[in-house]
Simulated assay, not measured.
Amino acid sequence: MRSGVRLGVDVGRARIGVARSDLHGMLATPVETVARATDGTADIDRLAEICGELDCTEIVVGLPLSLSGGSTPSTDDAVSFAQRVAAATAIPVRMIDERLTTVSAQAALHTSGRAVKGSRPVIDQIAAVILLQHALDSEASTGNPPGIAASELGPESTGGLP
């Protein structure tokens, strides 16, 4: 298992959930929810700032595929976002399948007794924790970095995603 803090990012249209790992890459915890910038780069600037504060070695961005594994407009948006983050931070960015992470986050919140309504920022952070923990667990079990490098994906290209 590679050491170093990883940042988990769940990209949405309105908000971005952010999680981090410990230095040993074993446990994911929530960090914050960043508002998605509609014009400009305030969201990417904030992620770069968080990476600097935490001395991140890698960023893991969720890749929202359809249930059948195909590309959607959200997939293309996430790939574009991940590539812009990679360019802005010069930190390796990997993308990992995030199907059903938001559903799992909502279920976890409901199970804990919190109302899902009005908890969207928390749900985004929990979804980022779930996706990052999945990436950490995958790497621990296989010995290989999870998902695929964002630089290997082009627009509308999700073929060959591990």
Rank of each mutant, 00 (worst) to 15 (best):
G52M: 04
A28I: 03
R114D: 11
P73H: 04
F81H: 11
V116T: 11
L131C: 09
A42F: 14
I16Q: 00
Q106L: 03
A19G: 11
E156H: 15
T75A: 02
D39H: 14
G113V: 04
G25A: 09
S21K: 05
L109I: 13
D97L: 13
A78Y: 12
L65P: 09
L7F: 12
S71W: 04
T111S: 01
S119T: 00
G62V: 09
C56S: 10
P162R: 14
A78S: 08
G159W: 07
L161P: 01
D55V: 05
E49V: 01
M26E: 08
L63P: 05
Q106H: 05
A149G: 06
A87V: 06
A150R: 03
A48K: 12
D39P: 00
Q125D: 10
A88S: 14
V103N: 04
F81R: 06
T41P: 02
A107N: 07
G52Q: 03
S68L: 05
D97H: 14
V5F: 13
S141Y: 10
T72S: 05
A149W: 09
G8E: 02
A87F: 06
V79H: 04
T101M: 14
V9R: 02
C56F: 01
T33Q: 04
D77Q: 04
G62I: 12
A88H: 14
S68A: 15
E32R: 04
S74R: 13
P121K: 10
T41M: 07
T89G: 10
T41S: 10
E53L: 09
S112K: 01
G113M: 07
I96M: 11
V11E: 00
K117H: 10
H24M: 15
R2W: 15
I130K: 03
M1C: 12
V93C: 04
A107G: 02
G62W: 10
R46P: 11
A140L: 14
I96W: 06
I130C: 08
I148E: 03
A115R: 14
T101E: 10
P121R: 09
V60S: 05
D97I: 11
D55E: 07
D43F: 15
P145A: 13
D45F: 13
A37W: 13
P145F: 13
S112L: 07
D137A: 10
S21E: 09
I130H: 10
G62P: 13
E49N: 07
T75D: 00
T57N: 01
V129N: 03
I148S: 01
D39L: 05
T101G: 07
S71E: 11
M95T: 00
A86F: 15
I91D: 08
A78E: 03
V18P: 11
H110V: 00
A140H: 15
S21P: 03
S104R: 13
F81W: 15
G143V: 01
M95W: 03
P92R: 11
D137R: 12
I126S: 02
